[in-house]
Design a protein around this nucleic acid. Structure first.
Lengths: 174, 174
DNA sequence: TATTGTTATACTCTATAACTATA
DNA sequence: TATAGTTATAGAGTATAACAATA
């Protein structure tokens, strides 16, 4: 579907199969996320990101904001925003850390665990129906290997210019 | 990392490998999309969605709004919003269709094609660096097959209750 | 009556920069 | 000086419902 009007002769184009893989990948995940959003919103009144945060907090120990941000693509202010929402909803509490006076400790509440418990079965059911059902066990193994490698590869990618910072801070310059 | 506090004994949990596949998949794509957003914004001043729309319009024939919406997860008002932005930026034009007086024909402009031409090489380079570089040709074939199947599977999923509508209309009922 | 598309409106999310406070 | 986190603010995106016009 690329128009004939542009000259790409200098560009080493990817194989059609490569492009297809890329498009299928992004569209499938986009569709999946869309369904997941709706399920979480309908059954627990939370967004996918809030669900991720609650899952991260669902262990026995509270986390600092920085620990919580790990693996989440946000700006720090974005995390503060979400944490404030979760706190207002009574799903987490925030308090000072005894170890480091700068840090904020975020802890999940009983109501937060309740919400996770309320939402998780449907979430698992949904992913089973949308994802697992469509692929064989063998494919799923392969998919896990491939995408884990891609994930790690991208994580190690330097931010285009400067030295890689500790976490995922906004790239600023672009 | 699941807390011991919740009783999931009634829930048939997915294998750990399945969960890993799901998490790796969503996180890798999320990281990929984040990089893509920045590249498109930096080099062409457009969002990923606007890029998708321009690519869809990059062929020889204009498309109606409905045709353009195909494969895009939006509400119709969301597409109207994006089309208005693209028009204001001079990248597309909108006009009435001679065939169907209700329809709006959207056509890409020279400036729009220019923008695609300006942005596409970097886009391809980026996906090569982030995605193709991390996987073998064989893996990429497999990935394409798997994700195409998943995409089609999800597309055919009925919206949870009512009969499947023509396109992706907001689910209303939840 | 169904379909195409727009508008109005409200809400959610994200990002930037400036700021406070502690290490 | 660097790190942890918040706040203010502005902008982008999304969804809903009501609407007008054509099929």
């Amino acid at each position: 579907m690329t128009g004939p009007e542009i000259d790409f002769s200098n560009l080493k184009l990817p194989e059609p199969g490569q492009l297809e893989a890329y498009f299928a990948l992004t569209e499938a995940v986009s569709l999946l996320q869309h369904h997941v959003e709706q399920q979480l919103r309908a059954e627990g009144g939370i967004s996918a990101i809030q669900f991720q945060l609650l899952m991260a907090l669902n262990g026995p120990v509270p986390l600092t904001m920085t620990q919580l941000a790990d693996g989440v693509v946000y700006s720090r202010s974005g995390l503060t925003y979400q944490a404030a929402l979760l706190e207002k909803a009574g799903l987490v509490t925030r308090g000072p850390s005894p170890d480091d006076e700068r840090a904020t400790l975020v802890a999940i509440t009983d109501k937060g665990r309740e919400t996770v418990g309320k939402v998780l079965p449907g979430h698992i059911e949904l992913t089973r129906r949308l994802l697992y059902e469509a692929v064989s066990a063998d494919d799923l193994d392969r998919l896990r290997d491939i995408m884990s490698r891609v994930r790690d590869h991208i994580r190690n990618e330097p931010p285009r210019s400067a030295a890689p910072r500790r976490r995922r801070t906004p790239p600023a310059g672009a």
